[in-house]
Computed example of a mutant assay.
Amino acid sequence: MIKRIWHGWTTPENADAYFRVLTSEVIPGIEAKAIPGYLGIEVLRREVEDEVEFVTIMSFQSLDNIIALQGPDYERCYVPDVAKKVLKRWDLTSQHYEVKHARSYG
Rank of each mutant, 00 (worst) to 15 (best):
K85D: 08
E47G: 05
V86G: 03
P12I: 06
E51I: 02
Y74S: 11
R103G: 06
S104F: 12
G29M: 09
I27C: 04
G106F: 11
E98I: 14
E51L: 07
V82I: 15
V86Q: 01
D16I: 00
K3V: 14
Y97E: 05
R45M: 12
T11S: 12
V26C: 10
D73E: 15
R76G: 08
A102W: 02
V99H: 02
Y38K: 10
L92I: 09
C77I: 07
A17E: 00
S104T: 13
Y105K: 09
I35A: 11
E31L: 14
S94F: 04
K85Y: 03
Q61S: 09
R76C: 07
G29S: 15
L63N: 04
K33V: 06
L69S: 08
A34S: 13
I5A: 10
G71D: 10
P72S: 13
Y78K: 08
W6K: 07
D73P: 03
Y78S: 13
E98L: 13
A102I: 13
Y97G: 03
F19Q: 06
S104W: 04
Q95V: 07
I57N: 03
W6F: 15
P72C: 02
E53L: 14
Q95Y: 04
E25L: 15
R89K: 15
V86S: 06
I67Q: 09
E98V: 14
K33S: 05
I2D: 01
R45Y: 02
E13M: 03
S62P: 01
P80H: 06
K100N: 06
V43D: 05
N14K: 14
K85T: 09
Y38S: 09
N65E: 03
P28L: 12
P36C: 06
I67S: 06
E47L: 06
I66L: 12
V82H: 09
D81L: 12
I35T: 13
A68F: 07
L39Y: 01
T93Y: 13
Y18W: 09
R76Y: 08
R46C: 11
